[in-house]
């Protein structure tokens, strides 16, 4: 068992977001739940960006993440952003082409890419990050058309193999597409 979450509590002011949340993660997992139920907060705690009010998270390895927003360096190309996080530039270009990038789009800085293109670049940055034992993917298919989302899902299944992965979504169809175990956060 790789990641063990026990009794996790987090509140923002009067709003209790997580209340005694517990979960074991060993391999890939889809985490679903309605908006505002604490999915993103859980990921931020696992990334070390938030501190839990109570409870514990153990076994999180080096993290690579897709955040709620893309968080790409706007002046770098999609492959440049992937390389910045340690990914191999040649592999990055190959995977980006696989997710629909043309030569012209590969040459554009991230600031000039569409929302869907930025999302795919952010996803590949996480998937191609070397040495990352834990992948935390927050709504990675946002802004993608159905066909591209299916290709992205296939890339996730292939590239996340062997790593503890939490993919957060509020979309049940996405969960089904991956064929991964699903856990709900309520």
């Amino acid at each position: 068992m790789s990641i063990r979450i026990r009794g996790l509590c987090k509140a923002f002011g009067a709003k209790q977001v997580l209340r005694g949340f517990a979960l074991d993660i060993d391999g890939p997992l889809v985490l679903t739940g309605p908006s505002g139920c604490g999915k993103t907060t859980l990921l931020r705690i696992m990334m070390g960006l938030e501190t839990a009010d109570a409870g514990s998270v153990a076994g999180v390895g080096r993290v690579a993440a897709v955040f709620q927003t893309d968080r790409l360096c706007p002046q770098l190309t999609a492959a440049g952003n992937i390389a910045l996080a340690g990914g191999d530039a040649a592999a990055a270009e190959k995977e980006l082409r696989g997710l629909g990038f043309t030569d012209a789009e590969l040459a554009l800085p991230a600031a000039r890419l569409s929302g869907g293109q930025r999302r795919r670049a952010a996803l590949l940055r996480a998937l191609l990050c070397p040495g990352a034992g834990t992948l935390l993917l927050d709504e990675p298919f946002t802004g993608m058309e159905a066909e591209l989302a299916a290709r992205a899902a296939a890339a996730i299944v292939r590239l996340a193999a062997g790593r503890d992965t939490v993919l957060v979504t509020h979309d049940a169809a996405t969960a089904a597409r991956l064929g991964w175990p699903v856990s709900a956060i309520l």
Partner: peptide, 24 residues
Amino acid sequence: KELLEMARVYRLPVLRTLRYIRVP
């Protein structure tokens, strides 16, 4: 700040963070 958080999560080296996030 969001890029700085990204740098923290991905453990980007200080010089890369400086060159590609802080200085720009």
